[in-house]
Simulated assay, not measured.
Amino acid sequence: MNTSLSLNFNSFKRFTAVKIVALGLLTAALASCGQPQQAQVAPPAPTLPVAEVQAGNATTYQEYPASIEGTVNVEVRPQVSGTLDKVFVDEGAFVHAGEPIFKINESPYRSALNNAVAALHAAEAAQANAQIEVDKLTPLVENKVVSDYQLKTAKASYRVATANIESAKANVSTAQINLGYTLIKAPVNGYIGRLEKKQGSLVGPTDVAALTELSDVHDVHVYFSLGEKDFVAFKEQYPGETIKDKLSKLPAVSLLLADGTEYAKQGKIDIIDGQFDKTTGAITVRATFSNPQGLLRSGNTGKIRLSLDHKDALIVPESATVDMQDKVFVFTVGDSSKVKKQAITILGKNGDNYLVKDGVKVGDQIVLSGIDKLQEGMVIHPEKQPASDKAAVVAKN
C-alpha cells in the first residue's frame, strides 16, 4: 500500500515538472510574439546639387601642332668653286637684297675673263683679215682675173671668223658671270641663319650644306595638318560652298608659342594643300601671321588654335560627367527623384564646360556632383542650384 502511494507520488512530481517546463516555454513564446521585431532601416537619400540644362552661345577651340617658316626662306649656295676669302655678315644679322655677304677668291676667274677677252680680240682680228681678203678678191673676180672659187673661199673664211667672234663674246660673258659669282649677295631681305662655312673654307656648287639660309620673316607662314576626320569636320563646321569660299569666311586664328603663351597678333588661313599625304593621311593647311618685330623665326614651333562659334549649344559642366568605356555619362533626375545614367555626345569644350550635341535637352535636371557614388535608379534628395552658382549649368556668351 505504501509502495503504491510512493509510485503515484513520484509520477505526479514528474508530470508537474513537465507542465512547468512547458508553461515556461509557452510563456517565453507568448512574450516573444508580444514584442515587435526591429525592422532594418534604409539609409536616407543623399542630398545632391542639381540644375537644369540650359542653352547658350559658346566658342570651342581646337589646337594643332604647327611649324613656322618665313614667307621667303632661301638657301644661299655658291655657284662657283673656290676659297672663301671674306664673310661680310654674322649669324642672325638682317641684310637687304643685294647686300654682299660672302666673297670667293676671284683670281682664277679674273684670269679666265682676261683670256676670254684676248680670244675675242684675236677673233676680231681674224675677221678683219678675212674681210680684207674678200675685198681684194671681189674686183678680181669681176674682171675675171681669178676664178670665183677663191672669192667663195674667202667669204666662207669671213663667216667662220664672224662666228668665232660670237663664240668669243659668249666666253667673255661667261667669264664675267663667273667672276660676278665670286661676290655672293643677299637675294632677298631677311635674317642670316647659321654660317656653315668659315673664312678660308673651300666651297663649291656641289656642297651638301648651303653656306647659310636667309629668311624674310616680316610675315611668317605657319603650317599645320588636318587628318581626314578633322578635315571633314572642318568643311562641315564653317560656312561656304567651296573651299575658297570657306577660307574667305574663316575667322582669325591664334598662334600658341612653345611656352604656351599666345602670340599677340592673329593670323589668317589662306591655303589648303591640294591633296592628302599618302604617308600620314593628313592634309597641310597654311596660316599667315604678320611679324613686324621679328619675334617669330623660321624653325619655330607652336600650335594653331582654331575657334568655332556655337549658337544655342547645350552646356554641361565637365564635373557633372563620368567617363566609362569611351563614353561620357550624366545622371538625370526623373520622377520620384530617381536618377538615370544617360550617355551624351560631346560637341566640344569651353573652359570647364562640355558642349553637348545630344543625350540631354534643355530643362533636364542633372546631378552636378557626387556622381561617383550614384547608381542607376537610386533615389536622391535634389537640391536645386541657382543659375549664378559656379556649379550650375550656365550659358556662355
Results as ranks from 00 to 15, higher is better:
Ala112Cys: 02
Lys361Met: 08
Asn57Lys: 10
Ala126Pro: 00
Asp230Arg: 02
Glu228Tyr: 10
Asn291Gly: 05
Gly377Lys: 01
Asn164Glu: 05
Ala264Tyr: 06
Asp216His: 00
Val333Asp: 07
Ile380His: 11
Val87Met: 04
Ile272Gln: 06
Leu306Ile: 11
Thr3Pro: 00
Ala28Asp: 01
Glu63Tyr: 11
Val222Asp: 07
Thr153Asp: 13
Pro78Trp: 14
Glu99Asp: 13
Ala55His: 11
Ala51Met: 01
Thr60Asp: 15
Phe9Asp: 14
Ala58Phe: 13
Phe289Tyr: 10
Val95Phe: 09
Ile269Trp: 13
Glu99Cys: 01
Ile344Asn: 07
Ile68Phe: 08
Lys265Tyr: 15
Leu374Tyr: 12
Val360Gln: 10
Val328Ile: 15
Val232Phe: 09
Val356His: 05
Ile101Gly: 02
Lys341Met: 15
Leu26Arg: 01
Lys268Met: 01
Pro292Thr: 03
Thr242Lys: 03
Ser173Cys: 00
Leu355Cys: 08
Phe88Val: 06
Val220Arg: 05
Phe289Gly: 05
Glu69Val: 12
Thr71Leu: 04
Ala55Asp: 15
Ser215Cys: 11
Lys265Thr: 09
Ala118Asn: 11
Ser254Thr: 10
Thr47Trp: 03
Glu99Arg: 05
Glu99Gln: 13
Gly363Arg: 13
Ile346Asp: 08
Leu195Asn: 07
Ser248Ile: 04
Leu355Pro: 02
Ala258Leu: 11
Pro187Thr: 07
Gly180Trp: 07
Leu137Asn: 09
Lys244Met: 13
Lys152Thr: 14
Ala97Leu: 03
Glu383Arg: 09
Lys144Cys: 02
Val80Cys: 06
Tyr181Lys: 13
Ile20Met: 12
Gln176Gly: 01
Glu383Trp: 01
Ile304Pro: 07
Phe9Ser: 09
Asp372Asn: 14
Ala154Met: 02
Gly92Trp: 12
Ser81Trp: 01
Ser11Phe: 09
Thr153Ser: 14
Val322Ile: 15
Ala51Ser: 12
Ile283Gly: 03
Val160Leu: 13
Lys136Ser: 12
Ile304Phe: 06
Asn105Arg: 10
Asn171Pro: 00
Asn57Asp: 15
Ala395His: 10
Asn350Cys: 13
Leu256Gly: 02
His121Ala: 12
Gly24Ile: 14
Val141Gln: 03
His218Arg: 14
Glu262His: 06
Tyr181Thr: 00
Ser307Ile: 02
Asp85Pro: 00
Asp259Lys: 08
His218Thr: 15
Thr182Cys: 15
Ala58Gln: 12
Val322Ala: 12
Asp259Met: 04
Ala175Gly: 10
Ala42Cys: 00
